[in-house]
Amino acid sequence: MSTTSIPAPRTGYSRHKSTRSKFEMFAWLFMRISGIVLVILIFGHLFVNLWAGEGVQAIDFGFVAGKWASPFWQIWDLLMLWLAMLHGTNGLRTIIMDYAEKPGTRMSLQVILYIASIVVIVLGTLVIFTFDPCPAGADPALLASFCQA
């Protein structure tokens, strides 16, 4: 006669053993953490580029060169690029999951989204790190004043 073990009452019941990855939980948490950081980064960006001084009218190549001459703004913009792109990509992933019902549509929209995101993140990162504020042969009138040395 085989013995059957009967669990003691009120030992707790696990509805489902956690076999799935914790990816969705991390994605949920990432949206909240990156969101708080982005509020600071983006309002700072909007204040400097749209509010202060002459606002958008002051932005040109020399303005960008002046900002990226400082590692502070390089890191600010790099962090903003990565966090905003990952936050936005995950947001669009959520929307695709909600509204695209056919597996083929879900898959192709996600592939387009991820390719676009990777291209923009890689391009933006390369631009920040390889930017030359005083390109050789450029019209000096278009460059920042610190290029005349």
Binding site: F61, V64, G88, I95, L123, V127, F131, D139
Partner: peptide
């Protein structure tokens, strides 16, 4: 969604600083 699509365009337009001051 609106902000995300603006962001894609905005990174591309800013990337023109690597083309030339005139293009940017």
């Amino acid at each position: 969604v609106g902000i995300f699509f603006f962001l894609l365009v905005h990174v591309l337009d800013t990337a023109l600083v690597r083309v030339s001051p005139e293009a940017y």
